[in-house]
Amino acid sequence: MRVAIAGAGAVGRSIARELISKRHQVLLIDKDVRKIDPERVVGADWLHGDACEVDNLEEARLEDCDVVVGATGDDKANLVVSLLAKTEFAVRRVVARINHPANEWLFTEAWGVDVAVSTPRVLASLVEEAVEVGDVVRLFGLREGQANLVELTLPEDAPVSGQPVRDLALPPDVTLVGIVRGPRVIAPNPDEPLEPGDELLFVASPGAEPALRGAVLPT
């Protein structure tokens, strides 16, 4: 997979290293010449230039990229990169970093963003996930399908405890994608019985989350 990352700061470099370790081809783009240092991310390609300018994106051959990541510290730049990647170069998947939570409402398909990542929201979700039992916790937004990855930890009195997965009466637009039970990650086999303390991972449309809560949790 070929990935272009706009922004060669600490975040962009960390993403690049992780992708390179998984044998992906990575191009880092930054307008600050001080950040162009191939020794800091061995194996990456580099381009000195403003990723908000079409000429530089053409030089980067963005049309050949499978994914573009807007990872700068400037929300405006990440939005412009996302829009250009999607509309001018037809990049299949665009991921954008949100630096300031107040700007989160802008990071939608209208700006070419398929997946938006807000560090404060992710951290808050992880805190909730660690302490909330018996409620739906939104972990991650999946913008492309207007869905969310949500987690629900079954309390002791959950009516579905002891039932097999096949008997879960899930509402429309909700799919069970995984069960975390202690150190184990379990695929949702229809015959797998649910147990108190299970962390259930669902992909759900935002409007279906209340119905999910009603279907799985005690009233």
Rank of each mutant, 00 (worst) to 15 (best):
W105N: 05
P101C: 06
L84D: 05
R97E: 04
W111H: 11
T108P: 10
L84K: 02
A85M: 11
F89M: 07
N103C: 04
V95D: 06
K86R: 12
V113G: 03
S118W: 02
L83Q: 09
A102N: 09
G112I: 00
V117F: 07
V91T: 03
L106G: 03
W111N: 07
S118P: 01
A85F: 13
G112R: 03
V94G: 09
V113P: 00
L84S: 07
T108Y: 04
E104N: 06
N103P: 01
A116P: 06
R92V: 01
A77R: 05
F89K: 07
H100Y: 15
L106Q: 09
N99F: 10
F89E: 08
W111K: 00
A110W: 13
G112Q: 05
V94P: 02
E88G: 04
H100E: 11
F89L: 06
H100L: 14
T87G: 06
K86V: 03
N78L: 08
F89H: 11
H100F: 15
S82G: 04
N78W: 12
L83R: 07
R93G: 07
A116L: 05
N78C: 06
F107T: 10
H100M: 10
W111V: 13
P101T: 09
E104F: 14
A90E: 14
K86S: 04
L106A: 14
V117H: 07
A77V: 14
V80M: 15
I98D: 00
E104L: 14
V115R: 01
V117W: 10
K76C: 00
V95Y: 08
D114I: 01
N103K: 00
L83T: 08
K86Y: 03
V117C: 06
A96T: 05
R93A: 09
A110I: 12
F89V: 08
S118Y: 00
N78S: 09
V95N: 06
H100A: 12
T87C: 03
I98S: 02
A85Q: 05
A116K: 11
H100T: 09
P101L: 09
F107N: 07
S82D: 02
V81F: 15
K76H: 13
K76D: 13
A85R: 02
N99S: 08
E88Y: 13
V95R: 05
F107L: 13
R93T: 13
N99I: 13
L79C: 09
H100G: 00
R92N: 07
V115M: 10
W105A: 11
D114M: 00
S118A: 02
A77E: 12
E88D: 08
T87E: 14
L106M: 15
H100V: 12
W105Q: 10
E109C: 02
T108I: 03
N99T: 09
N99C: 06
